[in-house]
Design a protein around this nucleic acid. Structure first.
Length: 469
DNA sequence: CTGGGGATGGGGCCC
DNA sequence: GGGGCCCCATCCCCA
């Protein structure tokens, strides 16, 4: 008995139990399941294109899309809710209309629903994700996140470390760059590739980003049977919570990683990638859609309040600039590195606060006894790049005198710190963390060199000086 | 183990 | 729109 897929896309085979014939291929249940589901999906897609048995009309900004309610029901939480309400009447067509995304975006999503392929690029990914968020399609959201993340430098040390280790230990960077999703690439979100992404141990998910999983050829993957979209997707909250948390945990390994970076001769190439990533980030920010109109939010004059909705979460803000700022907590972008310790921050003010607290000992409080000190009664003590104040009493009690950073006996330590000073010295500018106590006392005396980099490399080319207020 | 405090991150909003 | 301030929540270290 010969079994042939009706869609014509699958290889014919013979059943093992067919008398007189030997099986030409050892078929596993996974193969069978994959083939069956693929054929079914193709059949449904063909029916959609021929408008056969379509029982759902979706109106998007005047354009009508015909689809099958069962398919929509199984793919979107929004449609699940919508269709559940009218579930009793199964004979009549269901209509839905949307104004919050464009027909082009919905077409991409509908194509994904019927094919498992998501046509993402850097200019539509935010809108696709917003629409997916609206339609409650977590698998699409997760894929968009991964797509975005693959273009953005995530300044977690674990990520950095693993990436640089990867770069140095095996394949040349160039080879890896070929795996980076190009903006115009069509991305296959067939369930097999999703399975690969999500089935990896958590350690590997962030390290690999999305590079190893895309683009995949469409169609079947024999070793990873497709799942339904609902089975395959990773919970959105789960996904978004993993990365920032890991970023925080990883931040304590910064010093070791900085060494790795400077020793890695492929950094120059990497900066090319990073620069490209930054351009993409800018492009993403530029394409932030004004998907707004949060229900129940009104101005004082009862007019609806227009707010910008984050495509990653449910948060809304009044201003686009605030959304851009908020997006950094999702993208992991940290454009403000501290010169003294390489720790990175999402905001300049956070960097400044960190710098003043950690490296300038601005607080006039004795770290040991917590008493208020003055420039006279307290001295700045330095431990590595970290500075804090101790009152004279605590200094004498604790024997910290050798760590004092003033001109009398802190020279040795200061020389050590000076090793970290970069070429700015030639321009008569000093990085603040080598300034002595007297300079610290004169608030604005120290030039804080704030390095705004395009992305996570520790040796950014462009430098920007800013005066601390 | 727990509570306190410092460091950090994020939101709202003003300039 | 960017910068900055204020406030609050959370994390983490340490006693």
């Amino acid at each position: 008995m010969e079994m042939v897929c009706e869609s014509g896309t699958c290889r014919p085979y013979r059943s093992a139990g067919d008398a007189g014939h030997l099986p030409i291929h050892k078929w596993t249940s996974a193969d069978m399941s994959a083939i069956h589901q693929s054929c079914l999906l193709k059949q449904l897609d063909q029916q959609r294109q021929q408008e056969l048995f379509c029982d759902c009309n979706v109106l998007v900004e005047g354009q009508i899309f015909r689809a099958h309610r069962n398919v929509l029901y199984g793919s979107s939480g929004y449609f699940r809710m919508l269709l559940s309400q009218g579930a009793k009447d199964t004979l009549e067509s269901v209509n839905a209309s949307f104004d919050v995304f464009s027909p082009e975006i919905f077409a991409i999503i509908l194509d994904f629903i019927y094919s498992g392929q998501l046509e993402l690029n850097s200019s539509n990914v935010i809108e696709v994700m917003s629409a997916a968020s609206y339609l409650q399609m977590n698998d699409v959201i997760s894929y968009c996140k991964a797509f975005i993340k693959s273009f953005l430098e995530i300044s977690t040390k674990e990520d950095d470390e693993s990436r640089y280790l990867c770069l140095s230990d095996s394949s040349p960077l160039q080879d890896r760059r070929e795996n980076v999703i190009e903006p115009s690439n069509m991305c296959d979100v067939s369930m097999s590739s999703q399975t690969r992404l999500w089935d990896q141990p958590e350690e590997d998910q962030t390290q690999e980003d999305f590079r190893g999983t895309s683009p995949q050829p469409s169609g079947l993957q024999q070793n990873s049977p497709p799942q339904s979209s609902l089975e395959a997707h990773m919970d959105e909250e789960q996904f978004s919570s993993v990365l920032p948390e890991r970023r925080r945990r990883g931040s304590r390994k910064r010093t070791a990683t900085s060494r790795l970076v400077t020793e890695d001769t492929s950094l120059i190439d990497l900066q090319g990638v990073v620069s490209h990533c930054s351009q993409i980030a800018d492009e993403l920010y530029a394409n932030i859609p004004s998907i707004v109109g949060v229900a129940g939010v009104f101005n004082k004059d009862s007019t609806p309040s227009m707010r910008y909705k984050c495509p990653f979460c449910t948060h809304t803000v009044k201003r686009k600039a605030d959304l851009k700022r908020h997006l950094r907590c999702h993208t992991g972008e940290r454009p403000y590195p501290c010169q003294a310790c390489s720790k990175r921050f999402t905001r300049l003010e956070h960097l400044r606060s960190h710098f003043e607290t950690i490296h300038q000992a601005r607080k006039l409080v004795c770290r040991k006894c917590k008493r208020h000190v003055t420039e006279v009664t307290g001295r700045v003590v330095s431990e590595g790049t970290r500075k804090y104040r101790l009152c004279d009493v605590c200094i004498q009690e604790s024997g910290y005198s050798e760590l004092i950073t003033d001109g009398t006996d802190g020279n040795e330590d200061k020389e050590g710190l000076l090793l970290g000073v970069e070429e700015d010295m030639s321009e008569n500018r000093q990085i603040a963390w080598v300034m002595d106590d007297d300079d610290l006392a004169e608030d604005s005396g120290a030039d804080l060199i704030i390095q705004e980099v395009e992305d996570s490399d520790e040796e950014a080319s462009g430098k920007k000086a800013a005066e601390p207020r």
